[in-house]
Design a protein around this nucleic acid. Structure first.
Length: 768
DNA sequence: AGCACGCCGACT
DNA sequence: GTCGGCGTGCTC
């Protein structure tokens, strides 16, 4: 159209396809075009010609190598669709090659990844590329080997040829098989070297092909043991209800709301057994931290083939599992967040255990939440989803209240064990705590009592290192990271002052770097300091500290837990990593050293997190004959999160917290889009954030009958991180779609804002 | 994200 | 007079 409007010269190269002879029309109608997306932050897709040699093998989902950009540089991309109609574009480049024999993603996975890219505001290619493990893309654990087979019509050729004895042996070996044979296997069977093989190939008797094979086989045998555990009534009715749903072909979501120790895992297993009976597969997502040998064993015992996808797998192992899963050879896939993308061909169920865990949200692009991806995947597949938790997120709980999802309750612990009593210790009234100790009087008494009765103790403190601040009493400053807006944590054992944001470290200063005066105070408690204090208070009692400093080595985690299980260790203390999942019947005391750490986070979920934390650690005790109790040290004993946690009353906590969130206009009543901007010059960053705000305001904030609210621009709670200044905007509106529209409206201005980097996070879970 | 094209400062 | 700074705009 353009060309006719501007009086073209007759035969410019671009016009040639237009003035076409009949055979050219036929030819162009017969062309196949592939729509290709890239792992780049661009929303556009690009069309390529499919050369005839690739026509039979290319599928939507195929990984392709194409020339992209200026020059002939080859870039990896993903074919997302194929079409015969010529897209509106002048010149097309051709696909150079396919990267895999079979597409790595099927139609369902294409739909799922497209949904993620739209929901979480990033490109389809970015999602596709992050969903496929690196080991799968690099074909880790496999290599290309020359394979040999007899050439077509080799027999007629043999009539005119004389073969040596060795050559004859090779032909005999190949006659006995129908498959191409690897070179080394062939030469060893025929007891010969490579040269007679070369000769036969030159004579046209055998032909060779490159075939990709596994370097060594990775097996996954399971020990089957269907020892049935008797279900209690609540468990039984939960199982029955989900199994009904399985048969219905509907996609229902169940919230399995069960206190710690109520037997949620057994419910999952029973339902999965039913799924497996139908010849289908199940995905079980667990927090990475729960991927302990204990959990794994539990599934391996009950199912013949289980794939456990944890972060310590080698690329080759991961690749092998992926292939086995894709072939339908795996019944149950247990893994962390990314296991939601397991390529199970006939998925029958998804389970998310500890649904409230924040590790299900990915903190880099694509910033998806595995729970929401699961909701989408099960909806598409028409299968049920089970979300399990003792302390569900308020997002999930509200769906239950609104009857959008089905709540199945397990209100009792198995074997009728009671939940442990939780005592709140007001630290404001304790002299020793005022002086900087970690263990208050009540805690010490409880510890002595517990040890006297041969019980074990777990102490929880979510701060690693010795003390989180080095404070100068002369000038009132703390020692800070030069690149981040945080204080340095003193690590006594490693003899460093360390930044927990960027790993920057210095030798521990003896005098204030700010004013030069000596005598820095070690302010606050970390696990290292707690360990010192416990050892000083309880000489001769074996104490073990578990945090990311002591658990560096592979297998140290398991060894530590094993020695606690054996009773060699009486007191286990540590961070987050000891709060979840541990099940030791001898633990009679759990101490929360400082409940206020989580309560005082600058995050509207601080209260929810604190409740979850106390409930989770409380779940570590009272699991055996000896019973148990929980002590929570806090300076805020009147906080609802702490009060309700002490009463084990999640429902009441949720009721008041929901009311609070409703009043203040927080999730789950709205959704939040957080826009984070970072750059080296503070003024640029702030200006860019302001531009985005103005852009949104000018596009109109009233959408769907509601006004989107914008908070900011404001410096992020950690205003400086790794040398970058950071600003944020928070936009809230009940509809995620509206938030998406708002971003898409202003996104085009983003490139003008360089050198400021922008990232967007829907439903953010961290506000640092 | 690359990478080239394109207009203003310190060098031969 | 050139070499090169990185600002902006495109990639089927």
């Amino acid at each position: 159209m353009q060309s006719s409007a501007q009086q073209p010269s007759l035969f410019t190269p671009e016009d040639l396809p237009e003035v076409s002879t009949p055979w050219e029309i036929v030819d162009s109608e017969d062309q196949l075009y592939a729509e290709v997306v890239f792992n780049l932050p661009m929303l556009k897709s690009y069309h390529y010609l499919v050369p005839s040699g690739l026509r039979d093998n290319i599928r939507p989902g195929s990984r392709v190598r194409v020339p992209f950009g200026t020059g002939q540089k080859l870039t990896q991309g993903y074919c997302v669709s194929l079409t015969r109609t010529r897209p509106a574009h002048r010149n097309f480049k051709s696909i150079e090659s396919l990267l895999d024999v079979a597409p790595l993603v099927d139609a369902a996975m294409l739909r799922l990844t497209r949904w993620i890219s739209e929901e979480y505001l990033c490109s389809w290619g970015q999602v596709l590329d992050s969903v496929i493990p690196a080991g799968v893309k690099s074909k880790a654990g496999t290599r290309e080997l020359l394979h040999f087979e007899l050439a077509e019509g080799y027999e007629t050729r043999l009539t005119t040829l004389k073969l040596s004895a060795t050559q004859q042996r090779i032909v005999d070996v190949l006659r006995s098989t129908t498959e191409p044979m690897a070179g080394d296997e062939l030469t060893s069977l025929a007891e010969c070297g490579l040269s007679p093989l070369q000769t036969l190939r030159n004579k046209g008797i055998v032909v060779s092909t490159k075939i990709r094979t596994w370097s060594k086989s990775v097996s996954s045998a399971g020990e089957n043991d269907t020892s049935a555990i008797l279900l209690n009534r609540n468990q039984h009715s939960a199982v029955t209800r989900v199994i009904e749903s399985l048969a219905s072909g509907k996609s229902e979501t169940f919230l399995l709301y069960g206190v710690t120790g109520s037997g949620k895992t057994e419910v999952y297993i029973r339902v999965i057994e039913e799924v497996v009976r139908y010849g289908r597969q199940a995905i079980v997502l667990v927090p990475e931290i729960s991927l302990t040998p204990q959990t794994i064993r539990r599934f391996r015992k009950r199912f013949a083939s289980v794939a456990v996808l944890h972060s310590h797998l080698s690329d080759a192992e991961r690749h092998s599992y992926w292939q086995q899963i894709a072939r339908g050879q795996v019944q149950v896939i247990v893994g962390a967040r990314s296991a939601i993308f397991a390529p199970a061909p006939n998925l029958g169920l998804v389970v998310i255990d500890e649904e409230h865990e924040t590790s299900f949200k990915q903190d880099s692009t694509p910033r998806y939440h595995a729970r929401e991806v699961a909701r989408q995947r099960v909806r598409d597949a028409g299968i049920p989803l089970i979300l399990g938790s003792a302390t569900p997120t308020l997002e999930t709980w509200l769906r239950g209240i609104r009857k959008e999802e089905i709540v199945l309750s397990l209100p009792y612990r198995v074997a009728q064990r009671p939940l442990p009593p939780v005592m709140i210790v007001d630290t404001r009234n304790d002299q020793s705590l005022q002086k900087g100790a970690s263990l208050g009087r009540a805690m010490l008494v409880a510890m002595r009592e517990s040890l006297a009765k041969k019980g074990q103790i777990i102490l929880f403190l979510n701060v690693r290192g010795y003390s989180p601040a080095l404070f100068c009493r002369a000038c009132g400053q703390s020692v800070r990271c030069p690149d981040c807006d945080v204080t340095l944590t003193y690590h006594k054992q490693r003899q460093i002052a360390l930044c927990h944001s960027c790993e920057y470290s210095i030798d521990p200063p003896t005098s204030c770097p700010n004013c030069g005066k000596p005598g820095l105070l070690f302010l606050g408690q970390g696990t290292e300091r707690l360990e010192h204090e416990v050892k000083a208070r309880f000489p001769g009692v074996s104490v073990l500290r578990m945090d990311s400093d002591t658990m560096q080595q592979k297998g140290s985690h398991d060894r530590a837990l094993e020695s606690f299980r054996q009773g060699e260790v009486r007191i286990l203390l540590g961070t987050q990593m000891i709060a979840k999942g541990l099940d030791f019947p001898n633990v009679t005391l759990v101490g929360v050293i400082d409940a206020d750490t989580s309560l005082h986070q600058p995050d509207f979920r601080a209260s929810e997190r604190t409740f979850q934390l106390i409930a989770q650690v409380a779940g570590r005790t009272g699991r055996g004959e000896l019973g148990g109790k929980v002590l929570v040290q806090t300076a805020c004993p009147d906080q609802p999160a702490i009060l309700y946690a002490a009463r084990h009353d999640y429902a009441a906590f949720a009721r008041q917290e929901l009311e609070h969130r409703h009043t203040l206009g927080y999730p789950p009543f709205v959704r939040i889009l957080r826009i984070i901007l970072r750059g080296e010059i503070e003024a640029d960053v702030e200006k860019a954030a302001e531009r985005i705000r103005l852009g949104m305001e000018s596009k109109g904030l009233e959408r769907g009958g509601m006004l989107a609210k914008i908070l900011g621009p404001a410096p992020c709670p950690v205003a400086r991180l790794k040398k970058y200044f950071r600003y944020q905007l928070q936009i809230s509106h009940p509809s995620g779609e509206v938030l998406g529209q708002l971003w898409r409206d202003v996104e085009p201005v983003a490139p003008e804002l360089v050198p400021v980097e922008i990232s967007v996070d829907l439903d953010p879970i961290s506000f640092r």
